[in-house]
């Protein structure tokens, strides 16, 4: 119950923060006062429509060809309206397309694109990172150990976008193995190949962005797995397992990894926000038409409804990830109980 309350509180906090940021935004108030002070320049019906649309006036009555009366809203009115809009996912219209933000997000396939990229990269990174971490911990001090630790430290400290650019230069431009960006080739608009062809081409387009994001993510995971596994392997139950004559593999994966996985789950949830940040950059580098690339374009357009919505949704995802990891915690370690 306390967890749920915490989560709700967090969502309220995010909405408030979002509201404060965009309320304080220098552009809005200036343009509104400009509208109000120079009504002559604009068509009053249009102005009235905008003032109501952006919730700056409770009531607008047009009093003449160039004048109108406005009953201004208080900050509290605006906040409550904003709050309701946010929790009902009513984000308004995108400045770029004049269509609802939610429509642009889902119907255009952006959400699916991002989920594909994130899903593939996270799965691969978790698998590789954990596996290599376990092996490194098992063979501590070997060349494999120091090699994989060094490599993950390197990929960890290299900027994601730079790695992406390098991959484009090497694999796309020089070796011409993969396309340099995009989700699907342009000619699909004219002629779409059969399903197998579609799948293979999609994989080809997905490869480089997924590789970049995987490399961004697997290093931290490897280091953490290695650290927790080292700890777990020196515990008594591991020695007991070995003394019983269990195969090393059973000790590693059934006994040690199970106990070491608790911090891994927390870390996966905590680093989810960072992963989304990495996805924004990766999508931008590879023109991958997902939510991150959309956010990048929204920056250029000053498309505030999209930016607000993206910030809110990304924060929601992270909050949800934390909540789920908390529940997982209870399942993995029955000693932890939540009322």
């Amino acid at each position: 119950m306390k967890r749920v309350l915490n989560t709700v509180l967090l969502i309220v906090f995010v909405i408030t923060l979002n509201f404060i940021i965009f309320e304080l935004m220098p552009g809005t108030q200036a343009s509104i006062s400009n509208l109000v002070q120079n009504p002559r320049v604009f068509d009053p019906t249009q102005v009235a429509r905008l003032l109501k649309l952006y919730n700056f006036c409770k009531e607008v009555t047009i009093t003449g060809p160039h004048s109108y009366n406005c009953v201004p809203t208080t900050i509290w009115d605006r906040f409550s309206a904003y709050f309701v809009n946010m929790i009902t996912f009513n984000f308004g219209d995108s400045f770029q397309t004049n269509k609802p933000v939610l429509h642009d997000m889902i119907q255009t396939g952006r959400l699916v694109n991002t989920l594909t990229l994130l899903g593939v990269a996270t799965t691969v990174a978790l698998l590789i990172g954990t596996l290599l971490g376990v092996v490194a911990a098992a063979k501590r001090g070997s060349i494999f150990d120091s090699g994989s630790v060094t490599l993950s430290l390197i990929t960890f400290s290299l900027p994601t976008f730079w790695m992406g650019l390098l991959f484009i230069m090497i694999f796309a431009n020089r070796l011409q193995l993969f396309p340099s960006g995009g989700v699907t080739p342009a000619y699909w608009a004219i002629k779409t190949p059969d399903l197998l062809g579609q799948f293979l081409t999609r994989v080809q387009y997905l490869f480089l962005p997924a590789l970049t994001l995987t490399l961004f993510f697997y290093g931290g995971n490897l280091l953490l797995t290695r650290a927790t596994m080292t700890e777990a392997l020196s515990e008594d139950y591991s020695n007991t397992g070995r003394a019983k004559g269990l195969p090393e593999r059973t000790v590693l994966f059934k006994h040690a990894l199970k106990n070491a996985s608790l911090p891994l789950v927390t870390n996966a949830a905590l680093s989810f926000g960072g992963l989304l940040g990495g996805a924004i950059i990766t999508e931008t580098v590879f023109n991958w038409d997902g939510l991150g690339f959309w956010l990048f374009n929204a920056i250029g357009w000053k498309d505030y409804p999209v930016m607000q919505a993206m910030f809110f949704i990304i924060a929601l995802c992270v909050i949800a990830a934390n909540f789920i990891s908390d529940i997982f915690y209870g399942i993995l370690d029955p000693r932890i109980k939540y009322e």
Binding site: L9, L10, I21, F22, L276, G277, I280, M307
Partner: peptide, 20 residues
């Protein structure tokens, strides 16, 4: 804790965009 949960890069983007 709340600040820790909020995703860093999107918040950075939004703030820098707003402040200039």
């Amino acid at each position: 804790d709340m600040m820790l949960v909020i995703p860093g890069l999107p918040l950075l983007i939004v703030l820098v965009n707003v402040l200039g």
